[in-house]
């Protein structure tokens, strides 16, 4: 926590968790999919579902999906902007087991056809946690450049990724590994202190056993 976590942030109200946090979840999702979104199904859970309308949570998530940040004064107009930009939006309720009280599940389709489903949680202040990506655990904050690699659970993939990062002088801040079952689908979530170069991400994408690479850049 630093001085300007207390003396700020500048944000569109009314709630840091239900508005600013919700914008951030949408924003991170937009960055992760990496292309304009043409269809967004937004499923709310817990307090997001119960009090979201009064807190502008719906506008906030859509604003984030359009690439707006938490201090963007266009947030209350996000639905109209989405319409104008050709983004289809619908809302529902999420069925999450043991979901955080402020959660949203976003099912997204990008203009180039890329699909992405994430579960985002607003965990207090305007801090968030991206809990799941495409059904697998993820757990990252969106405060760091983050590399998410879906791979087959086989020996060697972690080494490939980490040695690439070392080679590019990217320091790892946190690293998590998850797998659905032994030998099944696995995911690495790596928060970095520096940005990962674009060509390295493309290189990873072509490796055998690596199924999908998603990158969240702060730039």
């Amino acid at each position: 926590m630093n001085l300007f976590d207390i003396m700020g942030p500048v944000m569109v109200g009314p709630s840091s968790s239900h508005t600013a946090g919700a914008v951030k979840i949408g924003y991170v999702a937009r960055k992760l999919i990496g292309e304009p979104i043409v269809s967004a199904k937004i499923n709310l859970y817990g307090s997001f579902l119960a009090t979201g309308r009064g807190h502008g949570t719906h506008f906030a998530i859509v604003a984030g999906l359009l690439g707006m940040k938490t201090d963007d004064v266009r947030i209350p107009k996000s639905m109209e902007i989405a319409k104008a930009e050709g983004m289809q939006v619908s809302f529902g309720r999420a069925d999450l087991e043991d979901g955080h009280p402020n959660s949203a599940e976003l099912e997204l389709v990008g203009a180039e056809g890329r699909k992405l489903t994430i579960v985002g949680e607003s965990i207090g202040g305007s801090l968030i946690n991206i809990a799941k990506i495409d059904g697998l655990d993820a757990n990252f904050s969106g405060e760091y450049p983050t590399l998410i690699v879906h791979n087959l659970d086989q020996p060697g993939h972690v080494a490939e990724v980490t040695s690439m990062l070392a080679h590019k002088s990217v320091n790892i801040a946190t690293m998590q590994l998850y797998r659905a079952k032994r030998g099944g689908n696995a995911v690495m979530v790596i928060e970095c202190d520096q940005e990962v170069p674009k060509e390295s991400i493309e290189w990873l994408n072509h490796l055998e056993g690596i199924e999908k690479v998603t990158y969240y850049s702060l730039l």
């Binding site: 003396m7 500048v10 944000m11 109200g13 009314p14 840091s16 202040g125």
Partner: peptide, 17 residues
């Protein structure tokens, strides 16, 4: 203004802005 979704400074929070 905060309740009406205008831009404020959360200091220390939005409710107490």
């Amino acid at each position: 203004s905060n309740a009406c979704m205008k831009r404020i400074v959360a200091m220390p929070t939005a409710g107490s802005c």
